[in-house]
């Protein structure tokens, strides 16, 4: 690949960066949806009576067992077919967000269960009810313990935002395709540039989360947490 080709690619960098902004927006929206839903699902799994807990486990199992693309299609074309006017971006947030909640709920469930039961008893002995115990004793510990596995989930879903390509969201891979179709010789360098952008952003994201973990670190709380090498835990 000659220097000339790379200088041509360089022209498209702003376009690609704008498209990457879509991925980042998608990431933030879906991870927030997944976080809130995931915490709720985890709390249901741990604290609610059996039928409801079983339902939450089934939810988790469904969203973890079905491919992202199938979920994207179900949410986008399925909801459209049912007469809902839904944008591809919003459908992607829902599909990928609920999927992520299936993984995040597992992370939070593990963290919630690792808070020693004696502390729950201590909270009750002070007169705290269930909601206060969850809010002041369980979640502050569980959320801290969740940060390392959650970082894994974070970088995994960031990469998966590209799958929104499948339902027509003009995110970075689709933008790169548009460019490469019109400028065939640029195909390889353009996609290498895209890959490089992901490497940099993933690195920055993990660095930021590492900092967050350090800032929120509490002596004695790290004992139950395990770092995972897996794609996601």
């Amino acid at each position: 690949m000659t220097a000339e080709i790379w200088s041509q690619v360089w022209q498209f960098t702003p376009t690609l960066l704008w498209a990457m902004l879509i991925n980042v927006q998608l990431l933030l929206a879906l991870i927030a949806l997944g976080l809130v839903t995931g915490v709720v699902v985890a709390l249901i799994e741990v604290y609610s009576p059996r039928p409801l807990a079983a339902l939450a486990l089934a939810y988790e199992w469904f969203f973890r067992g079905v491919p992202e693309l199938v979920l994207l299609f179900l949410f986008y074309f399925g909801l459209t077919q049912m007469g809902m006017d839904i944008s591809p971006f919003f459908a992607a947030v829902l599909a990928l967000g609920f999927r992520s909640s299936g993984y995040q709920s597992q992370i939070f469930r593990g963290a919630i269960q690792s808070v020693p039961p004696g502390q729950l008893m201590a909270a009750h002995s002070l007169g705290m009810g269930t909601m206060k115990t969850i809010r002041y004793v369980i979640l502050p510990q569980a959320l801290r313990l969740s940060i390392p596995p959650w970082s894994n989930e974070f970088s995994a879903v960031f990469k998966d935002t590209t799958l929104a390509y499948g339902i027509g969201v003009v995110e970075i891979v689709r933008q790169a395709r548009y460019i490469s179709v019109r400028n065939f010789p640029l195909t390889l360098p353009v996609f290498i540039l895209v890959a490089f952008m992901f490497l940099v952003l993933t690195y920055l994201g993990n660095w930021g989360l590492g900092r967050l973990e350090q800032r929120l670190h509490v002596p004695g709380l790290e004992t139950h947490a395990k770092r995972g090498e897996a794609r996601e835990l």
Binding site: S155, T162, V173, A176, T187, A195
Partner: peptide, 16 residues
Amino acid sequence: GTPLLVQLMIIHFGLP
């Protein structure tokens, strides 16, 4: 560190 879809694009559309 990079999305599988990007890797697929590199191999199927980039390598040609």
